[in-house]
């Protein structure tokens, strides 16, 4: 029958589980190995995609006749014994190959025709983070400005844009008000930028 040999060690709060599945029988067998630790499985990945056979609960795959298969995963949970178990085994179908991860003939071969298999075999082509221009700060939404201030500013903007001489352009009062507001904002901002721990989390 199929045997499961396990070892578990703990590092920095993460359990590292090493498994060897041995199939001494003369036929290839499909096996299901389940995680018994109290945490999610962190399966081995290739190109950011979990290796074939891994899912949330464990691993499923074929062990060739008279062969062994090494498996390993991490789990952010305290170690327990045993860390994993064989849930079931069955005789593998004729067409099922024992899992192979290396490329045939050294070429870029998708070992399985799924989107995940293609990513594993060919590698992701996402542009690297360094190539992406740093995102500009989000334009501050209008709602961040109090309504009264926003409507006054809009009115002044309309008057400033209106230069057809029909009497509703920007007035001297407007200019004085803008100066006064700018002055007060400047004063507030300079007070805010003084080092004060209470202010550190606040946005200007």
């Amino acid at each position: 029958m199929v045997n499961l040999d396990w070892r578990v060690e703990s590092r920095a709060g993460v359990s590292l589980v090493t498994l060897v599945v041995e199939n001494p029988t003369p036929t290839p067998r499909r096996v299901r190995v389940a995680n018994r630790l109290d945490g999610p499985i962190r399966p081995p990945r290739r190109e950011g995609v979990p290796e074939a056979g891994w899912d949330d609960g464990g691993f499923e795959g074929v062990v060739a006749a008279g062969a062994t298969r090494a498996l390993g995963y991490a789990c952010p949970a305290p170690p327990a014994e045993p860390p994993a178990e064989l849930v079931w085994t069955e005789r593998a179908g004729e067409t099922e190959r024992a899992g192979k991860t290396e490329d045939r003939d050294g070429g870029p071969v998708a070992s399985e025709a799924t989107p995940e298999g293609v990513v594993r075999a060919l590698g992701t082509a996402r542009p690297p983070a360094d190539a992406v221009p740093a995102s500009l700060p989000e334009p501050r939404s209008a709602s961040a400005i109090p309504d009264a201030v926003a409507s006054w500013l809009t009115a002044v903007e309309e008057r400033a844009a209106d230069d057809d001489g029909d009497g509703d352009e920007l007035t001297a009062d407007d200019s004085a008000a803008l100066d006064a507001v700018a002055h007060r904002i400047e004063a507030l901002r300079s007070r805010e930028s003084e080092p004060s721990p209470a202010d550190s989390g606040r946005s200007p």
Partner: peptide
């Protein structure tokens, strides 16, 4: 399809 032989070129063929 995009140029090259990476996964984004494989996906349309898949």
């Amino acid at each position: 399809s995009p140029a090259g032989m990476a996964a984004d070129a494989g996906m349309p063929l898949l």
